[in-house]
Design a protein around this nucleic acid. Structure first.
Lengths: 244, 244
DNA sequence: TAGTGGTCTAGACCACGCC
DNA sequence: GCGTGGTCTAGACCACTAC
């Protein structure tokens, strides 16, 4: 449990919004007022609003106010991702729980999904990603396929908050340069429904990622399945600008 | 030019790092020290470091310090960054077929999905996106909700290859600045299975897009459903670099 | 134990949106 | 003009890491 003040305040505001105390489109009390009524500093209020904004619940308009975007029940839990760094840092707020680690030889199916040769060797890490706030509803079940050369990774899987590619970077000296990503609709299959505490046949988002180093070598491939009611992939596409 | 203090400090630190004043792997001066030497408050230092961290130049470890990450030379390998332009180009190879256009009043469900007020008025365009190579298997069925002010758009829906937001830009004088996008797993519902020539209950990718102009105004919202066997959203996440 | 980043307070001024 | 969010200051205490 996160007992930081701003996290608590964020939860309070979140439940208040989902209970209808603040209707979509309406303005929240100003930051100064929130600070006064909740007996905290304005910076704490701002940190709390940062969280709500990151999750897409509110929108801030300079000079105007902070507005409620949606009042859906707390099912829509999402991440906004703009760059590899943000993706990699998304691990911060969630925990990885390793279910199994084994060495496998790729059959045709595995070879197809991860784009490898049939017969090639891989270390396979099966894990769940869990939001500490809702441990009963895992956000994602995934298979990660790691090149056998990076065997030392095994010794550091205990670190539950660091993204795999960061662990590899830190302990194996291989750095991510780009991530090729593929998102597709999918359905929760029977064999993983239990682990996810989800219903077999329910909709999900399948994300396949290939992590490449600067030379283009794919050192890590992961396939994750995110139940639709627990995860949405949010991103902002911006016009490219010449100067910052 | 951005003359926020923390942005200036971020640039200073960035150039210092790229000039070799701080080698990769080494620790930056502590936040307190940076604040003192640069004559700013610690919060300003932290805001600057936030930028550097978001751009992947440094890594912060609680209790340990802030460390310089490897500053890769520009390998020229992955210069592809996702932008609105790329998204808009995808419309080139496919055709939009308008099924219906009507003026609606948002009920609760519509208001929730597009983030508007219930009772507000919208122009709704229902359409299919079709790959000429495979006309029998539409790529996407979508609903676009357009602000009534942009009524003139109706006269130009005959143009099947230009993206809606480009039509609006061309004929209504409103330009896209950013697109907020949300991807989620979903299932083909009965009422649109026919139009898509897909099986009801089969997996799909749901993409919700909010198009904003420079002032942040959402002038177009679209919800598209892409059958999993016909469409996957591919993207490459590349490391970002600070400007300047 | 010393130093670090993470959090928090109580003030302040500013640019901006709205009226 | 007024209230808003954005920025900034100058303090403080804490949990954590490294030694």
């Amino acid at each position: 449990m996160n007992d930081r003040l701003y996290a608590l305040l964020a939860r309070d505001l979140h439940t208040a919004i989902s209970k209808g105390s603040h209707l979509p489109g309406s303005m929240l009390p100003g930051e100064h007022e929130l600070a006064a009524t909740h007996g905290v500093s304005r910076q704490t209020v701002r940190a709390a609003l940062d969280l709500l904004e990151k999750d897409g619940l509110v929108e801030r308009r300079r000079g105007a106010g902070t507005f409620v975007l949606e009042s859906r029940p707390p099912t829509g839990f999402g991440q906004s991702v703009l760059s590899t760094e943000e993706l990699v840092h998304y691990a911060r707020d969630t925990r990885r729980t390793v279910q199994s680690v084994d060495d496998i030889v790729a059959d045709q199916a595995v070879a197809d999904t991860i784009g490898a040769r049939p017969g090639s060797h891989w270390m396979r890490i099966r894990s769940l990603r869990i939001d500490p706030q809702r441990p009963q509803a895992p956000i994602c079940q995934s298979y990660a396929y790691v090149a056998p050369v990076l065997e030392r990774l095994k010794d550091h899987l205990g670190d539950e908050t660091t993204a795999l590619c960061n662990l590899i970077s830190r302990h194996c000296g291989v750095d991510v340069d780009v991530i090729d990503q593929e998102l597709q609709g999918a359905i929760v299959s029977k064999d993983i429904a239990d682990a996810l505490h989800a219903e077999a046949g329910s909709p999900a988002l399948r994300i396949l990622r290939r992590y490449r180093d600067a030379k283009g070598w794919v050192f890590l491939t992961s396939v994750g399945l995110h139940p639709a009611d627990r995860f949405a992939y949010r991103m902002r596409l911006a016009r490219t600008r010449l100067t910052g």
